[in-house]
Nucleic acid binder design. Sequence first.
DNA 1: CAAAAATACATCGCAATTCTATATATGCAA
DNA 2: TTGCATATATAGAATTGCGATGTATTTTTG
Lengths: 106, 106
Amino acid sequence: MFDKELLKGILPVIILKLLNDNGKMYGYQMAQTVKNLSGDRILIKEGSMYPALHKFREIGFVEIETENIGKRVRHYYYLTDSGKAECRKKESELRAFIRIIQQIIG
Amino acid sequence: MFDKELLKGILPVIILKLLNDNGKMYGYQMAQTVKNLSGDRILIKEGSMYPALHKFREIGFVEIETENIGKRVRHYYYLTDSGKAECRKKESELRAFIRIIQQIIG
DNA sequence: CAAAAATACATCGCAATTCTATATATGCAA
DNA sequence: TTGCATATATAGAATTGCGATGTATTTTTG
């Protein structure tokens, strides 16, 4: 696992980007996707994931769709238009940031 | 300026890397260097820089050399051997992290 | 078939980090 | 002589992700 501090500030972009590229997803699924994509090196915990998703919902970047899976209730999250716009903004910001960091560390 | 949250966790690496590549530097100089390298988009503030440097000193990653410039005292910081080792470690960690983030955002 | 593991959601409070604001002081240019 | 850049430093505010915890269902495995 990475120094967890590195993840700070990047989590929101990752969540937005995942929802943007994959349409609706549920929390656990997003955590698993990141885990797999990162080769088990980025583990997004529930304590990070759900507060972030609920905050996005409050702001209006995501909406929730509830689905019944047997006796279980599954919450799908998906981006609103403003969420998609936010995603584009955050993504280009992150890319620019990475470029500059790479320039600094050579 | 970038979303300041992005900087979190990266500051220590930047400091170590600057000292590693440039030998001894003083706080203000490091902040200016990052400011210039980033085209004014990354501004490391005093309240971040000095606590970080003093923490590194406590740990033993940096040592301080004092120099008198006129009536002013300038504090040069430079890496110890363990600081250099830490720099290598953090740098490779950061590079790996960036690779994975780029993979996630495509 | 029973136990264990994975799936799935969620919250509370802590620890860690950086920034804002503030304080102090010198050197230089307009 | 006023203001800006240089230069160091700290206290407190704000934010964030995580650990711990809780609940409950489904799937796998021995």
